[in-house]
Amino acid sequence: MNTLRTSLMLLVAVPLVALAGDKSAAKTGKAAEADCHHPADAKATAAKAGEASASAPANDGWKLTRGEPLKGAKAVKLADVLAKPQAHEGKTVLVEGQVRKACERKGCWMELAVAGQDKGPGVRVTFKDYGFFVPLDSAGAQARVEGVVKVAELSEGHAKHYESEGAIVPRGTDGKPREVQLVATGVELRR
Results as ranks from 00 to 15, higher is better:
Arg66Cys: 08
Gly72Glu: 10
Gly116Cys: 08
Cys108Gln: 09
Cys108Glu: 06
Lys63Pro: 07
Ala42Phe: 00
Leu94Trp: 08
Gly67Ser: 14
Ala47Trp: 08
Glu68Phe: 05
Leu112Cys: 03
Pro69Asn: 04
Val93Met: 00
Phe132Thr: 14
Asp118His: 13
Gly131Cys: 09
Val93His: 01
Val145Ile: 07
Pro135Arg: 03
Cys108Ala: 11
Gly61Leu: 03
Gly120Arg: 05
Ala87Leu: 13
Ala139Trp: 05
Lys84Tyr: 07
Ala31Val: 10
Glu156Phe: 11
Val151Ser: 11
Leu136Trp: 03
Pro15Cys: 08
Gly97Gln: 03
Asn59Trp: 13
Ala44Asn: 02
Val99Ser: 05
Glu146Tyr: 02
Ala58Pro: 09
Ala31Asn: 09
Leu82Asp: 09
Cys108His: 02
Glu111Ala: 06
Val123Ala: 06
Phe133Lys: 04
Ala46Glu: 12
Gly67Phe: 03
Gln117Ser: 14
Lys71Met: 14
Cys108Ser: 11
Ser24Met: 11
Gly21Thr: 13
Lys106Ser: 14
Cys103Trp: 10
Pro39Leu: 12
Pro39Val: 12
Gly90Met: 08
Gly140Gln: 14
Cys108Gly: 05
Ala44Ser: 00
Met110Asn: 09
Glu51Ala: 15
Ala139Val: 05
Glu96Gln: 11
Ala139Asp: 03
Glu146Asn: 09
Leu112Ile: 09
Ala58Gln: 15
Leu154Gly: 06
Arg66Asp: 01
Ala159Trp: 03
Ala83Tyr: 09
Glu68Ser: 09
Glu68Val: 09
Ala113Val: 03
Arg100Leu: 05
Gly140Arg: 06
Val14Arg: 13
Leu78Cys: 03
Glu156Pro: 09
Arg144Ile: 14
Glu156Lys: 12
Phe132Ile: 06
Leu64Ile: 14
Val76His: 03
Ala102Asp: 08
Asp22Phe: 04
Ala79His: 01
Asp137Gln: 12
Ala115Phe: 11
Ala79Ser: 15
Lys84Ala: 04
Ala113Asp: 12
Gln117Met: 08
Gly50Val: 12
Lys23Asp: 15
Gly21Arg: 15
Leu64Glu: 15
Ala139Pro: 04
Ala87Gln: 11
Leu94Phe: 05
Ala46Lys: 03
Ser55Tyr: 07
Trp109Met: 01
Asp35Lys: 11
Ala44Glu: 06
Ala46His: 04
Asp80Ala: 11
His37Ala: 00
Cys103Arg: 10
Gly90Leu: 10
Leu94Ala: 12
Phe133Ser: 08
Ala113Cys: 06
Ala25Thr: 15
Ala31Phe: 04
Gly122Ser: 07
Lys48Trp: 15
Ala42Tyr: 05
Val12Lys: 09
Asp137Thr: 14
Lys119Trp: 07
Gly61Met: 00
Val149Gly: 00
Glu156Tyr: 10
Lys77Asp: 15
Lys119Pro: 02
Val95Pro: 01
Phe127Trp: 04
Gly29Arg: 00
Ala44Phe: 02
Thr65His: 10
Val148Met: 12
Asp80Tyr: 04
Ala18Pro: 07
Ala40Trp: 00
Gln86Cys: 11
Leu154Met: 13
Ala52Gly: 13
Gly61Gln: 08
Pro39Phe: 11
Lys48Gly: 15
Gly147Gln: 02
Val99Leu: 00
Ala87Gly: 05
Gly147Arg: 04
Thr28Arg: 00
Glu89Phe: 02
Ala40Cys: 03
Ala56Ile: 02
Gly140Val: 01
